[in-house]
């Protein structure tokens, strides 16, 4: 059986103290805006970046890799769940959409 080809990803997590959704950027910093995240195109790099995130249990919680695609302003969600995480709930202007 052939292996599924790697698809672009970002590393995301929640801040431990505040709970806010954050993304890992190319400099290894946690940023709140998905567009500033590093879009990882390589499987080896993805594993390294996830390991970097998981090595910061005092800063973030629940780090994982999630599929994204390249957009005009940076990474964009492939799945609607990540779309809600990147913007906020649809019933109130809360979350990241309020910070934009």
């Amino acid at each position: 059986m052939s292996r599924r080809p790697f698809t672009p990803k970002v590393v995301t997590a929640n801040l431990l103290r505040e709970g806010d959704v954050v993304y890992l950027n190319a400099q290894g910093e946690w940023v709140g805006d998905l567009h500033d995240a590093e879009l990882i195109e390589d499987e080896t790099r993805a594993a390294e970046r996830l390991a970097l995130a998981e090595g910061q249990p005092g800063r973030v919680v629940g780090a994982y890799l999630t599929d994204m695609k390249a957009g005009r302003n940076g990474p964009e969600p492939v799945h609607f769940r990540e779309g809600f995480r990147a913007t906020g709930p649809s019933n109130y202007p809360h979350g990241k959409q309020a910070e934009a």
Partner: peptide
Amino acid sequence: VYLQLHAY
């Protein structure tokens, strides 16, 4: 205390 989609 849960950790949900956007926050605790």
